[in-house]
Design a binder for these strands. Sequence first.
DNA 1: TATGTTTCCTTAATGGCTCTAAAGAATCTA
DNA 2: TAGATTCTTTAGAGCCATTAAGGAAACATA
Lengths: 240, 240
Amino acid sequence: MTASTSRRQRLRQATLEEIHAAARKLLVEQGSAAVTVNAVARQVGMSGPALYHYYAGHDELVGAVTADFFRELAAAMEQARDARDDAPLGDRILAACRAMRAWATAHPAEFGWIFASPVAPPDRRPDSARHQAALRFERILLDLVVELWRTRPFPVPDPAGLPASLREQLAAYSAAIGGRLPPEAAHVFLSCWIRLYGLLCMEVLHQLDFAYTDMAPVFDECLRDLAAALDLDRSGPPDA
Amino acid sequence: MTASTSRRQRLRQATLEEIHAAARKLLVEQGSAAVTVNAVARQVGMSGPALYHYYAGHDELVGAVTADFFRELAAAMEQARDARDDAPLGDRILAACRAMRAWATAHPAEFGWIFASPVAPPDRRPDSARHQAALRFERILLDLVVELWRTRPFPVPDPAGLPASLREQLAAYSAAIGGRLPPEAAHVFLSCWIRLYGLLCMEVLHQLDFAYTDMAPVFDECLRDLAAALDLDRSGPPDA
DNA sequence: TATGTTTCCTTAATGGCTCTAAAGAATCTA
DNA sequence: TAGATTCTTTAGAGCCATTAAGGAAACATA
C-alpha cells in the first residue's frame, strides 16, 4: 500500500513542482499578468481545468508560488547566516542582510511578487502556506537580533521618551514575540527592519530610478546605519 | 465657432471626469482588479467599446487615473506647504510631509495604486501625463530642500568618505536637477526621501501589520529623524 | 434651411480569461 | 477481475480587452 500510494504522491509532487516552475517561468519572462491558470496549464502540457485538481483556483496557485519564493529567500538568508557560524554575530547579521538583497536583485520579479503580488490580494489566513513562509522569513533577522540582545545588548532609547501610543504597540509586539525583546529593543529592531526592507521595496518597485542606477552603495550605507544602531562594531569576535 | 466647439469640449471634459470618478469608485470599493474597461463604462452608463473614444485602451485609462492621483497628492502637499508661508521653512517642510501621509492614509487604495499599480506596468514615457504628474510630486520636497539649502545649509557628509560609485551617481543626479544641490546635499535629500517614502510604501502595502496597528507615531519619529538630518530645529523663525 | 462632416455611441464578433459540470480514461484497491 | 479513486478532457457560462462596422446626433457650411 505505502509503495503504490506514495508512487502516486510522488507523481503528484512532481506535477506540483512542474506547475510551480511553469508559473515562475511565466512570471519572470512575461510578467505577473502572464501567470494565468490557462497559461500555466498550457506550459505543463495539460488543458486549463486540469489544474484545478492541484489548486482550487488562481489565487491559491499564486499563494503557493509566493510561499515558494518566501522559502527560497529565507533559505538564502539562512545559508548566509550559517555559512560561518564561528564568525562574530554581527558579521552573520550583515551576511543575512546582504543575502536578502542579493536574492532580491537576482530575482526581482519574484521579490516584487512577494510584497506586491499584482494579481491577487495576499492570503492573510494565518494557517496558509504563504503566511507560514512569510513568518519564517521575518523571523530570521528577529532571531538574530534576539541572540544579539542576549549576548551583547545594544543601546536602546529611554521608553519614557516614546509616545504612549508607540509604547503600547511595542509592548504588544514584545509580548507577541514571547518577550524575547523588551519593547525598547523591539523598537530598535523594527526601525532597522523598516529601513532595510523599505529600501529593497523601493528599489524593486523602481521608485528610485530617478536618482540611482546602482543601489549597491546605497544599500551598503543602510547596512552601516544598521550596524551602528545595533552597535555591531563595538569589538571583535563574539567571545572576545 | 468657439462657443459651439467649446460646448462639445465641455461635454467631453465632463464625461472624462465621470470616467475617472467611476474608475476611482471601482478601485476604492472593489479593489484594483475591478477597474476594467467594461466595468468603468457600465458605471458611467455606456457600453464597453464606447470608452475607446476617450482612451486608447485599458492601460491609458489607468495611466490617466494615476496621473489624477499624483496631482491630487501633490496639491495636498502644496497646500500644506503654502498654508502659512510666513512660517519657518522647516515647519513648511514638515507640514508637506505630514500632508503626504495624511493623503496616503485617507486614500490607501489610490496611494497603493500610485507606486504599485497592480493592473498595468507604469507608463515610463517621459511625456506621459502620468510621468509629468509624478515629477511634480517628486519635486515638491526637492524644491523645499533646495530652498533650505540656499537659506540655511544643513550639514552634509564629507564626499571623500563616500564610495566612488555613489559619488558618481550623486554627481549625475546633482546635474540632473540643475546643480541646485551639490552631490553631498543631494545625498542627504535622497536619504530623507527614501526613509519617508519607503515608510509610507510599507505602511500602505501592509508590510508592517505584524508589529503595528497605528503607524502615526512611527511616522512622527521618522519626521524627527528627518528634521535632525536637515537641521530644522536649529533655531526659530526663518528670518530670526 | 439643406448637406456633408465630425463626434459619439451602439451592436457584433474574436479570442482570451476563470471556473463549473459532466464524462472518459488511467490507476490503484481489494 | 470488479469497484473506487484519481486524473484529465471537452463543453459551456460569463467575464474581460479590443476591433470593426454602422447608426444617430451635433456641428459647420453653403
